[in-house]
Write a protein that binds this DNA or RNA. Structure first.
Length: 437
RNA sequence: GUGACCAUGGUGUAAUGGCAGCACAAGGGUUUGUGGAGCCCUUCGAGGGAGUUCAAUUCUCCUUGGUCACCCCA
């Protein structure tokens, strides 16, 4: 009767889905993630950055102070919730503020001058997902705190370039600007207002609003009319104080001396309130958005209630990096992939097989297998699919003789070897492939 | 927060108000201890909920997720 239908309805359990904008990172993307972590560690080591990791949760007030109450991130993009103990916490929307908090809290200024740290991990923003933008995304970042010399701005920039360069990303477009400091920015802001105020009616709706809230953002608008008006707008470079001017020149000289191509973009401004002086962005033709960005933040520690500690940093959007690599058809080699596949046939072999496998693993040899399958055929097939070049075959006869067959999958050549020499022999075979790197 | 489009096995797709078909992938077999090709077989599906209907994968609504643009951002 109604049995069939009811059963079907009961059977259809609700399946869980990942939250919006938070995709799973799957094994098929391992090559890219693995390569990114390799490169990240290499660059961090080359540039002498130390690892730091802060919690994914912070007091909501921390970000509200640092990013500015009126910023978009605070106004509508931050995940905020109350704990059972009635604390107001936020999932971190970015990585720099927590590091400044950690710097102050742990008195890190006493350990090293300047402090150079790197971090990586998820950042969370409640946004509408679209191409290259997620609610949870991962960043790799560098920060240098405790010194305001332009040589550190330059090193952040270099580290990020090296990072992208080692990943073989092409067509990098590096734009840099300064947004002045407490002394000169207010002046420029006034000049900007003086210029735009009479033109208000010609601006797009958003810019009319920006004019009230944050005139610097007018420069960011992509509306055709606003762009046209921008072309004769005052340029910040003409309104910098002496110190900011010197700083910018210093950074640019370092950049030029190291033959780094850049575009001086006087209209580059950034969305986060805490920046001063140097700001920069890196993009690539394949992506309509920034691949990496950063800047100087000399007032940030003060803003969150601590002593004044200058700093500069930048971060790289890892999902975007992978997107670009895929578009540029950059497929790194998977280094962690086993190069030996172990096959056992028959009860005896199956029993002692895992001991042999574990022995090899203990000796540092990565071993792949499909020991749950019975037939030699099925296991060889699995080895083939994995693309493993060396296969070990251990059957009844070999158990008895205390030998094992080594098969080269490419040539099909097989040879017998003594079990006692297994680890040593395999290491010898694998060694040539490793010494080339 | 605004707007547009989309949702069928693991993946890519087809047709349909009443049997959901194909390809690839996956697993097994093709005789006994040898992978890749061919052939054969098998497993697996309508995101969730409500409504219209004798009957819904198909029509309607809600929801969830995806994609894209705006806003903004890595």
């Amino acid at each position: 009767m109604e049995g069939a239908k009811n059963k079907k309805i009961k059977k259809n359990k609700q399946i869980f889905q990942a939250p919006k904008g938070m995709p799973d990172i799957l094994p098929r993307d391992q090559v890219w993630w693995e390569r990114i972590f390799e490169v990240g560690k290499e660059v961090s080591s080359l540039y002498d950055f130390s690892f730091i990791e802060t919690p994914i949760l912070e007091s909501a007030g921390l970000f509200e102070a640092s990013l500015g109450e009126a910023s978009d991130v605070i106004e509508k993009q931050m995940y905020v919730f109350n704990t059972k103990g009635d604390q107001r916490l936020a999932l971190r929307p970015e990585g720099t503020t927590p590091i400044c908090r950690a710097y102050l809290e742990n008195h890190m200024g006493y350990y090293a001058h300047p402090l150079k740290v790197f971090y990586h991990g998820p950042m969370l923003r409640y946004e509408q997902p679209q191409a290259g933008r997620y609610r949870q995304h991962h960043q790799w970042g560098f920060e240098i705190m405790g010194d305001n010399h332009p040589v550190y701005d330059a090193q952040i920039i270099f580290a990020i370039h090296r990072f992208l360069n080692l990943l073989k990303i092409k067509g990098i477009n590096f734009r840099i600007n300064t947004i002045g400091c407490r002394v000169c920015r207010p002046n420029y802001r006034r000049k900007l207002l003086e210029y735009y105020q009479p033109l208000k009616k010609e601006l797009c709706e958003d810019c009319q609003r920006r004019l009230e809230v944050n005139p610097l953002r007018l420069l960011d608008c992509k509306n055709g009319n606003c762009l046209a008006l921008r072309s004769s707008a005052p340029v910040i470079l003409n309104h910098l104080c002496q110190n900011c001017n010197n700083h910018l020149r210093g950074v640019l000289e370092f950049v030029e001396d190291n033959d780094l191509a850049y575009i001086s973009d006087p209209f580059l401004v950034r969305g986060l309130d805490y920046y001063n002086r140097t700001v920069f962005e890196i993009d690539v033709p394949e992506l309509k958005m920034a691949l990496a960005a950063g800047g100087r933040y000399d007032y940030l520690t003060e803003i969150i209630g601590g002593q004044s500690v200058p700093g500069v940093g930048g971060s790289i959007g890892l999902e975007r990096v992978i997107e670009v690599m895929k578009q540029q058809q950059i497929v790194p080699e998977l280094k962690s992939k086993p190069r030996v596949f172990f096959i056992a046939v028959g009860d005896q072999a199956e029993k002692s097989g895992l001991v042999l496998v574990e022995n090899m693993r203990r000796a540092g040899i990565a071993v792949s297998e499909a020991l749950g399958r019975k037939s030699l055929k099925a296991q060889l097939k699995a080895a083939d699919k994995k693309g493993v070049p060396l296969v070990l075959i251990f059957g009844q006869k070999e158990v008895f003789e205390e030998t094992i067959i080594l098969r080269d999958m490419k040539s099909g050549v097989q040879e017998n070897m003594l079990l006692s020499k297994l680890v040593e022999e395999i290491k010898k075979r694998l060694h040539p492939n490793h010494s080339t790197k």
